[in-house]
């Protein structure tokens, strides 16, 4: 989350991908960074955030999160 916020400060459009296991931490970080409503894409189970995923799982997860990433990157400001 903080990486994305700092990239935005540097003028680079960014989208954080946050796993549900650390969603609270990401929201806290957005709040203390002064952007409490900064949007992010949520990755969820069954993908355990620290697991080693199979190629198929990575493909499936990517299919799930990419639409959200594109939506946030291309939305008007």
């Amino acid at each position: 989350m903080r990486d994305a916020v700092e990239l935005e400060w540097a003028g680079v459009p960014s989208v954080p991908i946050i796993h549900k296991a650390v969603q609270g931490s990401a929201e806290s970080m957005a709040k203390l960074s002064g952007v409490p409503d900064y949007p992010f894409v949520l990755a969820d189970y069954p993908y355990i955030p620290t697991a080693i995923w199979s190629d198929q799982e990575i493909q499936t997860l990517a299919d799930e999160v990419v639409p959200g990433i594109l939506s946030l990157l291309t939305r008007g400001t």
């Binding site: 296991a21 609270g24 931490s25 806290s28 970080m29 203390l32």
Partner: peptide, 12 residues
């Protein structure tokens, strides 16, 4: 330093 469980401390 805000290392509070459930906030920025996300230990399993």
């Amino acid at each position: 330093c805000r290392g509070i469980p459930g906030v920025l401390d996300r230990a399993s």
